[in-house]
Design a binder for these strands. Sequence first.
DNA 1: GCTATTTCGTCATGGCCGTTTACAAATTAG
DNA 2: CTAATTTGTAAACGGCCATGACGAAATAGC
Lengths: 402, 402
Amino acid sequence: MTAPLHQAHPAGSGRALPDTQQGMRRRNLARVMHTVSAEGPLSRAAVASRIGLTRAAVSTLVDELVRSGLLQELGPERPGRVGRPGSALAVSGHGPAGIGAEVGVDHLAVCAVDLRGEVRARAVRHGANRGRSPAPVIEELTGLVRRVVAEAQGQGLWPAGLAVAVPGLVARDARTVVRAPNLDWHDTDLGGLLPVGIPLTVDNEANFGALAELWLGEDTPRDFLHVSAEIGIGAAVVVDGRLLRGTRGFAGELGHVPVRPDGPECPCGGRGCLEQYAGEEAVLRAAGLEPGEDRVGLLAGRAEDGDEDVRGALRDAGEALGIALTGAVNLLDPESVVLGGALSGLSPWLLPSLQAELARRTAGPACPVTVSRLGPEGPLLGAAHSVVRGVLDDPASVAERV
Amino acid sequence: MTAPLHQAHPAGSGRALPDTQQGMRRRNLARVMHTVSAEGPLSRAAVASRIGLTRAAVSTLVDELVRSGLLQELGPERPGRVGRPGSALAVSGHGPAGIGAEVGVDHLAVCAVDLRGEVRARAVRHGANRGRSPAPVIEELTGLVRRVVAEAQGQGLWPAGLAVAVPGLVARDARTVVRAPNLDWHDTDLGGLLPVGIPLTVDNEANFGALAELWLGEDTPRDFLHVSAEIGIGAAVVVDGRLLRGTRGFAGELGHVPVRPDGPECPCGGRGCLEQYAGEEAVLRAAGLEPGEDRVGLLAGRAEDGDEDVRGALRDAGEALGIALTGAVNLLDPESVVLGGALSGLSPWLLPSLQAELARRTAGPACPVTVSRLGPEGPLLGAAHSVVRGVLDDPASVAERV
DNA sequence: GCTATTTCGTCATGGCCGTTTACAAATTAG
DNA sequence: CTAATTTGTAAACGGCCATGACGAAATAGC
């Protein structure tokens, strides 16, 4: 198994595959898969012209991929143009599947996604996980995973890997949850707790959310900043289509960017961190509400009803977000900023002040701010898709396993 | 010519070389060059074991590189171990040279660096360029370039490219200076003004400074934040050994990160930007000094002499830098922060408050802050080396030109 | 309806490139 | 002085993509 670049925590950073004919072959197999996956049913000739190889070379690559069950021959295309019609190729719907899982504060979710990107099975369990110790939660999650895997297998799929999204900081080993304040987990190695016989990857939910946006969003650029919030405020930086992780894997801690350096103290040790103004707890307090079950829904509902306290609190939060994002945008020059997770539901009341602040502090045109279409589904889908992308990135690695 | 990844503004982001046998060959030539360049004189066998190819394959690659004048055979190694001693290979000192140039506010400088990384020729001209129109300045620079090129040629070198560092924002075409406030240049295409018959690249001096740090610094990590200042404050973000440029090429504008959102107005339109606290002008004003010739030297001198006003101003600037860097570090999780350019000379008085602020606002161990060893030489060396790296990254592209 | 044209997929051939295997050369160990 | 070890090179081999030719299947023109 070679670790593709976008995988949760790539081991090395150099070229993964050795530069020998075999590596070349593997990379070309990957290019065929990516092309077919991205541009729908395509003939061998179309693929060849797109990736710059000859029809003959693509033919042998396709043969290999069809034999491995990764590509499917759909039969002759509808002839619209002159010449013999090609034989349409599509990504197989019966090959490997990516299993995505999410440990939320209030729920567990698992889904299976096939190579085509379709969700083929899912399972959810609601109920607060806050404060429960990791072992029983993971045990419950394992049950859901088994159910989803079984259901996928019933449809002719086989699990190629499991990716778990957690609301917390994950070490670069892609297995250990270093700190998940909202679950009260510390230094928990999920590798030992999830006894599923398939490759495991663990990552921050914000990271998976950003990847989902990158892969599934429409017109998502290759350089953007994805901001999300469950309770803390997390950001993910995508540069040139790849996640920026940082040395320890902690990049994107937008919540503790100083907004007002002399502001209220923050548990992190700093003062006036963004989380003190735009964190869920802070917004609820400013709105005069008590923390409860569906906090985001509550805020959205009150704001919708015209509650001025809530609206004001969200306006202030948007302003603080705008200040913090001004710094981030100046530093990174992204093509856009995408609001995801809980923020997408509250965007109608956050956006105006956020954008105003950003525009006011920017010389020239301000960085466009958009709202994720995926909403709360992002992290789960991103996790499952990360496994699928792993297969697309190196088809040879799974072809052996068929 | 293929654009290597670290080059000023790579055209595309995908794999540069096509995945065919020829591309493979080219990449393997590059790997041989990089290995020999990085690890000193090495035998063919040693190179082979390092890059994972066989001795036979490396032999043919080396032959080609020697014939092109990029590698040099130094003769048999001193035999310390059992077995036939290898024949030492070293990067040639008579092949291509990188020409670096710098347009500073108070000076012009040009140098030539060979493949071994040694400076083989240089020329400097002092005198204020502030407010002069681009044409005469560039004409003067061209003269220096011609002199340095001639001197290098006299030593058996030939110029492979010219890289120019400017104190301002450069568009992604790597030729146009969009805005250089300290020179008062706007939308100036240096490509038309520099009629030297070799490939031209223009980039921000902060970017080149960061690259110099990456390539020449000792123990510089592959993920760091390089902060420098001439008059504005610029940062360069290096991720995984590559410069982060941003969509428009404007990444790293640390100077306009909000430090105190309600602070003094800034020409950029914002309020309380870092530059209002730690910019050269602001520091001079706070120290009660007038802007003059050698401003940095003046500040350092007074601080050295114990001038409390100056020390206080620098302390405050360090504090503001610390606040801005806290945000950047939270967002990027770099392995270290490196202070370069003018900041390195003032570091004794900036560092204490900067580090204190950073540590106070960080949970866990704070990001280490170091001072560049290169100082004001960084941008010029980085520019010249960027050309050299371009050759190492694709030796085949220049081998044709011999 | 028939032929020429265009495009698709495949096959045989050839060239490029790293590997394998073998061997001579140059050194150390005993 | 011999055995062992390591280096560099040469020849044969195998993998992989390119080239060129060919049959198949559609359209375009008459």
